[in-house]
Design a protein around this nucleic acid. Structure first.
Lengths: 292, 292
DNA sequence: TGTAAACCATAGGCCCATCCTATGGAACTT
DNA sequence: AAGTTCCATAGGATGGGCCTATGGTTTACA
């Protein structure tokens, strides 16, 4: 069964006449007749009574008619939905790590909302390795994540670099120290993110570089929880600068560390082969604009 | 847009791989790729992200997918509904004249109900000329009507012949006459069916043959009404023999007329070119069987 | 009733769309 | 770095659908 057969069938059913149906379908009458006959053979039923003057639907024909109409209407709908659909290509799925998402995405989404009202952004928060895999698998249009990311399939566009800061509670002994070095942290208890977190890995590597293994008191999945625990004096932590917000002032102290200061670089990653939707382009445009 | 394109699209969407989709669709990979590309061009959107490892639906692709599935499912349903449908071809539309329908159709339908339980009979009552036109137009599978019917497009199969009987109320002066001739009716008032009724025409012609014009008191559209009026003594009528039923005994008297007795012949008419459905065959079979 | 017109099916040839194989280039895997 | 996988392109082959011509019926009309 093919669509042109159904179209021809419908033309005959509506004009009740093969010749005029052929005109309407812009084919010759023999071609149309042949296709209707083929359709009848395939379906195993005569679809029309050929009465000479008129062609009248058989019962099978009448049964098929309603379905044929619906099928053609759906074909039509599908084509139309895609062809005049400006809001299509405007839905994107963006990933970000837990240390980026809460601090960049809200503002970014806010800008997009005013600048590109039709843009629909779906955000997903996950650890870097998961984000990388999702971008490779095509599940995400793009992701905001810390470096390093090395994969030949990915486009990596760094957007900013920032120091990692020591975070302690306001009452913590380290809070009042004029300067803190890495080795000062060896005896303290750390509050870190989950095992999959790339920040946690970086902190552990940082400590290893200074010849001590961090004592880990708690693992959380959210940055907010880390801050909460640190503010209670349960331990210390190391967080990127973007995590510092005004509301922290009363309870937390962020300190740059002297010596070889740890830092991280944040980038946008995309799949090199992925078809770039308009929505993704707009989002990237807003991001670059904002960074200036 | 053609169905094979949609089938190919669906195969790719489900296998996420052009090569395997081609195998599944029993075409070569280049053919399938080409058709998907054509479809994308027609729709004006890329449907897949070609990521090398996988082919992942774009947003447009995802939108189209649900529609494509439904379309193919409906195609499938339509084909299946017609191919394994024993109850199809079992619905017939039968016409009969007012002087035939109430007396033949109920019994006939009753027989069919037991003999062919799946046969669905839709009955339509109308005058002969309308029935003839409806059969020619293909609206009726067949019709039971009185003769004459002359049309080269129709098959006419006579099924029985019967006399037309004089009908009078039990109290009517003619009721006790040992014999009645046509000319005896000249002075009486007639109750007849509508102007389009072929019986009425026949009665008028019968009277004309005997050199008088019938005085028409009332015209009704139903035989039952004629009987009712006749039984009240409002007038007399002439009806075919099949119209006589047991319940009439108390109120009506049917009398054969002497001289050249009027009669009518009832036949089944069908369109010679009409595709003969199984239902129609069964109905005719039951009719012929019953007449024996 | 005979003739012209309308209608649908068949026949035969043509042609373009789709199909195929072969191949290239890019990416992924080992 | 080599082999494998994957999709797109190219070019030639093929067949399904299209066309014209025509025949057989039916229908309309004079």
């Amino acid at each position: 069964m093919e669509l042109h057969q159904i179209r021809y069938f419908l033309a005959v059913a509506e004009s009740e006449n093969f010749t005029r149906a052929a005109e309407r379908a812009h084919v010759s009458q023999p071609s149309l007749s042949q296709q209707v006959i083929n359709l009848e053979k395939e379906l195993g039923h005569k679809l029309f009574h050929r009465l000479g003057r008129r062609a009248v639907l058989t019962e099978a024909g009448a049964t098929f008619l309603s379905r044929a109409k619906r099928i053609l209407a759906e074909i039509d709908d599908a084509a139309r939905e895609l062809s005049d659909a400006p809001e299509l290509d405007r839905r994107i799925v963006v990933g970000a790590t837990p240390t980026v998402a809460p601090y960049l995405l809200p503002q970014l989404i806010g800008r997009c909302r005013t600048e590109f009202p039709r843009l629909l952004i779906h955000a997903r928060e996950d650890f870097r390795t998961h984000l990388v895999r999702s971008v490779i698998e095509g599940e995400l249009d793009l992701a905001l994540t810390s470096l390093p990311v090395k994969d030949p399939r990915l486009s990596v566009e760094p957007i900013f670099k920032e120091p990692l800061l020591l975070v302690v509670g306001r009452q913590h002994p380290l809070a009042k120290r004029p300067s803190v070095t890495a080795t000062d942290l060896a005896e303290h208890t750390f509050i870190l993110l989950g095992d999959s977190s790339s920040l946690t890995l970086q902190v552990q590597r940082f400590c290893g570089d200074h010849a001590f293994e961090p004592k880990i008191g708690y693992r959380c999945s959210q940055v907010a929880t880390v801050k909460e625990l640190v503010s209670l004096g349960v331990g210390i932590s190391i967080l990127p600068q973007v995590c510092r917000v005004k509301d922290d002032r009363n309870s937390l102290v962020y300190k740059r560390m002297t010596g070889r200061e740890p830092e991280r670089e944040v980038a946008v990653i995309r799949h090199l082969l992925r078809y770039q939707s308009r929505g993704a382009e707009q989002f990237l445009g807003a991001l670059r604009e904002w960074l200036k």
